[in-house]
């Protein structure tokens, strides 16, 4: 697949993934634009991989994990996207609170929980993406779920990355 086709096909999915990962739409735009710029440079090699999208998504994760360096180079911006004002519905308030807690997670914990419950990756796949061992992945996810105050014994719907 040519780069043009890849961008046309996958940029929306990358934007969603980066937004979930960073909880900041402006940062997601920065991450995805920069990553696609670098992918463009190396596209002939990337396109020959078995799973180019997985590789580019990993680039997004790596870029996100180093985003503090980016912030030092750019103008100060709000740390967290303004939360939508609750309309009083319990579900919406709970959702917004969940976004707030997500935004407060340490970066690797958030990356691990997003890769598991948003991208649907296995421990092994997440370990590859984050460059760590599987027990570390499990530990990161466990801590993240505790911080998010998620009870795994409650209902567990199917999760699927949107694309």
């Amino acid at each position: 697949m040519e780069f043009t086709e890849y961008v046309a096909r996958q940029r929306p999915a990358l934007m969603r993934f980066a937004t979930v990962l960073s909880c900041r739409t402006w940062l997601a735009e920065e991450l995805v634009s920069d990553v696609l710029g670098r992918a463009f440079e190396r596209w002939e090699r990337i396109s020959e991989m078995a799973e180019p999208h997985a590789y580019v998504r990993r680039m997004v994760v790596n870029e996100y994990l180093s985003w503090r360096r980016r912030l030092t180079r750019t103008s100060p911006r709000a740390e967290v996207e303004p939360m939508a004002v609750s309309d009083g519905a319990d579900e919406r308030a709970e959702r917004d609170e969940m976004i707030h807690r997500l935004a407060g997670l340490p970066r690797k914990q958030r990356a691990a929980v997003v890769l598991r419950y948003y991208a649907g990756l296995s421990d092994k796949e997440i370990a590859v993406q984050l460059g760590c061992r599987e027990p570390t992945v499990r530990s990161q996810i466990h801590r993240a779920l505790n911080a998010l105050r998620i009870d795994l014994t409650a209902s567990s719907p199917h999760f699927q990355e949107t694309s």
């Binding site: 961008v7 940029r11 929306p12 934007m15 969603r16 980066a18 937004t19 979930v20 909880c23 739409t25 402006w26 997601a28 735009e29 634009s33 920069d34 696609l36 710029g37 463009f40 996207e81 939508a84 579900e91 709970e94 959702r95 917004d96 969940m98 976004i99 997500l102 929980v113 997003v114 419950y117 948003y118 998010l148 105050r149 998620i150 009870d151 795994l152 409650a154 209902s155 567990s156 719907p157 999760f159 949107t162």
Partner: peptide
């Protein structure tokens, strides 16, 4: 305590924000 459904709702809301941002901005590739 929350459940995974709430986490999923949070992801969906962030998806929506990403789509809204994509519709109003930005360089596609830098």
């Amino acid at each position: 305590m929350s459940d995974l459904r709430t986490l999923h709702d949070a992801f969906a809301e962030l998806d929506r924000r990403a789509d809204a941002a994509a519709a109003r901005t930005a360089p596609v590739v830098r």
